[in-house]
Design a protein around this nucleic acid. Structure first.
Length: 759
DNA sequence: TTAGGGTTAG
């Protein structure tokens, strides 16, 4: 039996096809030209694996049948598309065909379009345009458009659309359906819908394509409405339609409609495929009916890794991490996606340390390897913890593994570096990539906003518009934050007013909260109140919170009481609201009111979160609670604190007593001793254990009090050390002092303290 | 002379 290579070498391209009668193993041949019924070709369909196909290949080469384009196409099809396909091998075989026909080109383009390397599909298509004497046909376009969709290759896909129209294939329903998918994948839902409405005769796939596009494009209401129209037009939905509809229900978190869809599927006897059952499981876990999910899971005749992972994520969502772990261990196999579900479950429920612990375990395990999704979740956990050593390590890992930065990873890296206080690294990542989607731009705008570079953030927004990337709701939230941080009232108002008419983005609660914050900080409290009163949507807690913070800034008690009342109505557990209001009273010397609030808090049994600061030293995150004495280096830390206190006194520092008089979140007597605040323990630990050139990066779960902020600034000067202090309001409250830095300029001072306002 | 487009977890 010849090996592939020897067979290929012994049959050079100029080999002439023998006539069928010369063929030693030929049985019957239809006529002189066609080999469709040649026994070797019939054998291809019976092959069960690559090994057998290779044997057939060798035989075909031996008798010359391989050099008949039709026969070769049958072989290529088997290699490229069979369940045990070997695409790389198919490509090698393809390259040996003297003149592949259009069918063969199409098969290869099709196989690569659904492979992990859809770019090969496009490259082969380009090669085909040059080498194949036939023009692309109605079978070519759906595949090559699919490849463009997979790659979100917007310009190329549009070009293909144009080519199809020029080739008089503009009304082919297969091509148009794939174009719906392509435009949606590129984020152009409008174009996808335009294509859909202009299809002369829509079939069920047309409907499925547009419904899925809307469901996945965060427009679940539109998807459900289209389903209604589909029914009204008597187009019978199939299982794929229902997968899209269930995905829309899951997005809407609407259990009622989800249950209705479940019964609709049963009533209409729609084929309950594995995918459909998985989509239903997902809907139930997302919509909060775990019992229904469990019932369905238990009776599913077939389960795959998606079913198991969905259940795992469902338990994690309930906060039952033990059960999630049990599912993880009970799964027939744990692939990367299962690990990812566990990591992201922890990361998204505010348990970043646990997420990193699972990530460490994954690295030790042999059977799965971190992928891009893992890295995105892990980077987010690092961002939450301010763990820049580990985040930076992941960045190096990405480079070493040769992983190309996609937009998700780029966004995560920018977010991680920004939140860890290294704006320059974030900008370095931003400038290093060629492709930037709306999330990448928005993350960079957020990074600049966090660091007080509001004008740079606005400048970046203008650059973003030049590249024709359409801003979304996230972009505007970040942009408005930037205006708020830098006190750009008029600019903020302009952006807010342009959102819907110019950019088609409906202002949501977050945008109103930002606007209230912008106006409130500028002292325009009445204007802020007027904005809230005229809101077309219900003002959420963030809106009242912003107003309350502004009232504190400007000492407006009446409005503060009103805002606090509304806030507590929405979030009766909101400890911070009580604290803010009581501080307003304290500021104005209304001590009876302060005591009243203390009593109210005690009576309502509100449990406060203890103050906690994290600091990463050499890749290990250390945690300090207020007044903590559990750390192994505790004694040394307190000695360092004494030394710090002495040095502070020597330069004339006097503790700001007003912070003691006010009700702060750390209200216990012991906790009120300012010098025991957790951030100070973390700073002392950082000074003790880190090299003199290493910046100390601290993340605090609550707000940093004013005195601690002043102390941190002083320590930074006295010890000539960069200290980054990030608190709970880092992202949304816009309470940082503007630090004027240009996009690429270096900080002028060695001190870079962020987040500076106090309670 | 062969064929295709739309589907779920993270």
């Amino acid at each position: 039996m010849a090996t592939l290579n020897t067979a290929l070498i012994s049959h050079p391209r100029q080999h002439r096809l023998p006539t069928p009668t010369q063929n030693p193993i030929s049985i019957t041949v239809n006529n002189d030209r066609f080999f469709a019924n040649h026994p070797i070709l019939l054998l291809i369909d019976q092959c069960t694996g690559t090994k057998q196909l290779k044997q057939v290949h060798a035989q075909m080469l031996r008798i010359g049948l391989f050099f008949d384009p039709y026969s070769a196409s049958k072989l290529i099809t088997a290699f490229a598309l069979s369940p045990s396909s070997s695409l790389g091998y198919a490509r090698k075989v393809f390259d040996q065909i003297p003149q592949p026909n259009l069918y063969t080109w199409n098969i290869l383009i099709r196989a690569y379009a659904s492979s992990p390397d859809p770019d090969h599909s496009l490259l082969i298509f380009l090669q085909m345009l040059v080498q194949c004497p036939e023009l692309p046909n109605k079978f070519t376009f759906p595949f090559v458009i699919k490849a463009a969709a997979e790659l979100s290759a917007s310009r190329l896909g549009r070009g293909l659309h144009g080519m199809a129209v020029k080739a008089s294939l503009g009304s082919d329903v297969f091509i148009l359906n794939s174009l719906i998918h392509f435009y949606a994948a590129c984020g152009c839902l409008d174009m996808a819908y335009q294509v859909f409405v202009n299809i002369p005769r829509r079939d069920v796939v047309s409907w499925n394509s547009i419904i899925t596009s809307f469901a996945q494009g965060n427009c679940p209401d539109e998807a459900l409405e289209l389903f209604r129209v589909m029914e009204a037009e008597n187009m019978k939905p199939n299982d794929v339609t229902m997968v899209g509809i269930l995905s829309a229900c899951a997005k809407k978190l609407d259990l009622e409609i989800g249950k209705w869809v479940h019964s609709y599927i049963e009533r209409n006897e729609i084929n309950g495929s594995l995918t459909l059952n998985n989509a239903m499981l997902d809907m139930y876990t997302k919509c909060g009916s775990f019992e229904d999910a469990k019932r369905l899971f238990d009776k599913m005749p077939e389960k795959d890794i998606v079913s198991w992972t969905t259940m795992l994520a469902g338990y994690a969502k309930l906060g039952d991490y033990d059960a999630a772990l049990r599912v993880f261990n009970a799964m027939p196999s744990q692939d990367t996606a299962a690990w990812n579900a566990l990591i992201s479950a922890y990361e998204q429920s505010g348990k970043p340390k646990e997420a990193l612990a699972v990530f460490n375990e994954l690295q030790l395990c042999q059977s799965a390897k971190p992928d891009e999704v893992t890295l995105v979740s892990t980077l987010s956990a690092c961002a939450q913890l301010g763990a820049m050593d580990l985040g930076g390590w992941i960045h190096v890992y990405i480079k070493r593994q040769g992983i190309k930065l996609n937009c998700h990873l780029t966004t995560s890296l920018i977010d991680m570096y920004s939140k860890c206080g290294d704006l320059e690294k974030a900008l370095e990542v931003f400038h290093s990539v060629d492709t930037r989607d709306v999330f990448v731009w928005s993350a960079m705008i957020a990074g600049l906003a966090m660091h007080g570079c509001g004008r740079d953030a606005i400048y970046l927004f203008t650059k973003m518009k030049e590249t024709k990337v359409k801003p979304n709701a996230v972009t505007f939230t970040n942009l408005l934050c930037a205006c708020s941080h830098t006190g750009l009232v008029e600019e903020g108002r302009d952006f807010f007013n342009q959102m819907e008419p110019v950019y088609g983005v409906l202002p949501g609660v977050k945008h109103y909260a930002c606007m209230v914050d912008i106006l409130g900080r500028a002292g325009r409290l009445e204007e802020a109140m007027k904005l809230i009163k005229n809101m077309p949507i219900a003002p959420g807690a963030s809106v009242w919170g912003a107003l309350l913070a502004a009232c504190r800034l400007h000492g407006n008690v009446d409005l503060a009481e009103q805002a606090c009342g509304c806030l507590l109505e929405l979030e009766p557990w909101n400890h911070g609201a009580y604290v803010l209001l009581s501080n307003i009273y304290a500021k104005l010397g209304k001590w009876d009111k302060v005591s009243g609030i203390r009593k109210l808090m005690r009576d309502s049994g509100l449990k406060k979160e203890p103050g906690c600061s994290l600091v990463e030293v050499n890749g290990v995150v250390h945690e300090f609670l207020v007044g903590d004495n559990s750390h192994p280096l505790c004694e040394k830390i307190y000695m360092k604190l004494d030394e710090i206190s002495a040095r502070l006194k020597s330069v004339g520092y006097v503790p700001n007593k007003s912070h003691l008089l006010q009700l702060v979140e750390e209200e216990d007597v012991q906790e009120q001793a300012l010098y025991l605040h957790s951030e100070r323990l973390a700073i002392a630990f950082g000074l003790l254990t880190m090299g003199p050139s290493q910046p100390i990066r601290i993340v605090k779960n609550l707000r940093v009090c004013g005195d601690c902020h002043s102390v941190a600034k002083l320590i930074s000067r006295l010890y000539d050390r960069e200290i980054f202090l990030r608190d709970s309001c880092w992202n949304e409250v816009q309470q940082s002092l503007p630090i004027d830095k240009g996009i690429l300029s270096k900080p002028t001072h060695h001190v870079a303290i962020l987040l500076v306002e106090t309670l």
